[in-house]
Design a protein around this nucleic acid. Structure first.
Lengths: 126, 126
DNA sequence: GTGTTATAGAACGATTTGGTTATGAACTGG
DNA sequence: CCAGTTCATAACCAAATCGTTCTATAACAC
């Protein structure tokens, strides 16, 4: 899986409220499929499908334990997604800094700065 | 739009490599639709659709300028998504700490705890 | 064994996505 | 006014999502 495909799978997995709720639930510890299905008022096969999408992204793992398949949260891919977003956090922080700088410049008395559009006025003035 | 729907829209928007590339391109400054379409070898209407999804998530904004509709990146929703992921970053950092603590506990002489699978470790270690 | 429980999978349907081409609307410039 | 540019929209298609119900598998309990 390429890094881009990994990001695809992770963001797709996070783009559903049921799956985010499943992850939130799993932060409290492992859970079986039926335990996960109960509070969501959706059928068990629907939860199995969500788990497959989460598994595809590497966000959860399962361990066979008899008939149970306890689901456990995995952090790795989420960190990659967070790192990706971090790049943009830096960008918009820079933007705010640039905006601050611009506001400061706009408050200084602007007398003789550069002309934005140097229209070729040749004979009338200057 | 509820916060959950906002997160849905944001993660959906980020779950496509073309849209992530568009955002990356926009970090270099505003761009017109055709400028965005060119490097991706997809049609202009396809880019318009991607922009609509990005706009729905509030990740980009457009300003009417004649026939041009320059596209600009917006930081707000991305920050919300990053904050959401941050919660999980804290979780897995805690997990690592708990793992460290567990490993430490496991190295202390365990005498009388419950044993689910009492492997025959009778006299050597402990 | 039989029966129950836990889970996966097949089959189906409605909706959404991501792409296309063709067309229409709005502004620009001669 | 006419022509060209920029962009959005409509119509369409293939594939994926998200849900359902029904069934099959696998392990446990009796």
């Amino acid at each position: 899986m390429t890094p881009s495909e990994q990001l695809d799978a992770t963001f797709i997995a996070l783009a559903d409220p049921t799956r985010r709720a499943i992850l939130a639930r799993l932060m409290g510890g492992e859970a079986s499929v039926n335990e996960l299905a109960e509070p969501f008022s959706i059928s068990q096969p629907a939860v199995s499908k969500h788990l497959k999408i989460l598994e595809r992204a590497g966000l959860v793992s399962r361990s066979a334990d008899g008939t149970r398949r306890p689901v456990k949260i995995e952090a790795g891919p989420m960190k990659e997604a967070a790192d990706w977003l971090e790049k943009y956090r830096r960008f918009w922080e820079q933007s705010y800094k640039r905006l601050d700088a611009l506001l400061e410049i706009l408050q200084t008395p602007v007398n003789q700065s550069e002309k934005p559009t140097p229209t070729k006025r040749s004979d009338k003035d200057a």
